[in-house]
Design a protein around this nucleic acid. Structure first.
Lengths: 254, 254
DNA sequence: CACTGCGGTCGACATTGTCGACCGCCTGTC
DNA sequence: GACAGGCGGTCGACAATGTCGACCGCAGTG
């Protein structure tokens, strides 16, 4: 198997670097961070700029991600079959549960949100499509870990990052949680990534029964939980939506 | 000035091809469409796949855009200064006008929507962030054409595409409309791109008075227009929002 | 069974991408 | 004001790579 094309891999690394914390970087910073010669980094940045994937601030000379990524990202969503088939079911789930609904797929070492239905109320909400969630501490992530061996491989060994006092950080605990998820067919995450937030997620499969994603509801602990546990009626709603989406993707009757 | 890096330009062309009409293409289709050798196309696709920019359906062998584009597209939005500063003003404009609000920037030969506030009602709406609008027939596009010479250059010579009977298709008419926009400081588009839809847009400038984008409201003709013209109160609201956003970007008092 | 076209691999080699050396400009320091 | 340092950027030699024609196995069709 031949290796990757070096300049493409380097370009991808530059774009990922620009997507990271600092977000605007100079030529020399990019070259140093990726251990490239300045002429090399410049050649790649110049071409990425010509193609719209990178922009350069004319005043500071700093580089940042470009608009073509947004456009192609939207095109990715347009053609995403799972998302297309889930749209209506996700709306229904938001209405039935009164909570925010997320649709996520495994991407690199986390869960990529590909669809987001706002909670049907008047509160201000921020669209999460395109953002990543951790695998070990979210309902979506736990579902993918339970059913997708690739996800488990991506997670690696612990200890994992602790976001709240309730986050599971040991691999053994995360694996036990995955076994529980498989046993009962759904996952929950109560204040494990964000304080005050609880979620319930379930698996989506394609017509070959391969895991292709997960759907979840997410909301305030006070609404999602009762007597210390997530509400069974919400669990039922999430699982029902997951089954409906799976059927639309061609998975047979369960 | 040296040319672009060939393999990067080719990779960009492949991704744009996959973003086009058909959206899922086989190796040979990609090679033929871009006049590349199959080995060349395969090498590029293999690397794009490894980096997450392209995915291959294991059953059909077809290639499509990958999830990393969505993630980087979202990162582009996160760092987009114009959008960050416009968020609150856009929300205010949606509330004040009762209509959908779009924020757009010039990108290649059109307007890229970088922010979208839903009309504050219960109707089902589709998020347009990441989509492109034409330059010659939308309020956002007309504003950019009026103030941004780069936009005018990207538009080229007519005749332009006619979307409705009211679309301006001759370059002279579009230029006259741009002059009118400069004269009165705002643009409108009444059923020029979509039947039954009217929009009002105004320019956003940065601290050096460079045009950096435009904001508009968009809604049903029956609500946006009165006696055959767009409502003056809505024009005032859009212009006010545009000035506020420009000030936040450092443009001085007008 | 033969044919066609698919995705994919391989290796020779021509072309390109790489990178060290150098440039002008800007900023900070003395 | 002079100087040093570091910036973005260019240039051209050349080593390394990306290109592509030839070929492969497989699946679908007649």
């Amino acid at each position: 198997m031949p290796g990757p094309i070096q300049s493409l891999s380097r370009a991808a690394a530059i774009m990922r670097l620009l997507a990271g914390g600092e977000r605007r970087l100079g030529l020399s910073e990019v070259a140093t961070a990726l251990d490239l010669a300045k002429g090399t980094a410049h050649g790649i940045l110049r071409t990425l700029q010509q193609e719209g994937f990178v922009e350069q601030d004319p005043e500071s000379g700093k580089y940042q991600l470009g608009a073509e990524l947004l456009r192609l990202g939207q095109s990715y969503l347009d053609v995403h079959e799972l998302r297309a088939r889930a749209l209506v079911w996700a709306d229904d789930l938001a209405r039935a549960s009164g909570e925010t609904v997320y649709l996520g797929v495994l991407h690199q070492r986390g869960v990529l949100i590909v669809h987001h239905v706002f909670r049907p109320d008047d509160t201000r909400q921020v669209l999460e499509v395109g953002s990543m969630q951790p695998l070990h501490s979210t309902a979506l992530g736990k579902v993918l870990l339970a059913y997708d061996p690739v996800a488990r491989g991506e997670l690696g060994e612990g200890p994992f990052e602790s976001y709240t006092p309730r986050t599971l950080t040991e691999a053994a605990d995360v694996d036990a949680e995955a076994a529980l998820t498989r046993e009962r067919g759904w996952a929950d995450a109560v204040e494990e990534t964000w304080e005050g937030v609880a979620s319930i997620g379930a698996l989506i499969q394609d017509r070959r029964r391969n895991p292709v994603g997960a759907v979840c509801i997410s909301g305030a602990v006070e609404r999602v939980c009762e007597d210390g546990f997530v509400k069974p009626s919400l669990v039922a709603s999430v699982r029902s939506a997951a089954r409906a989406i799976s059927r639309d993707l061609g998975a047979g009757r369960f």
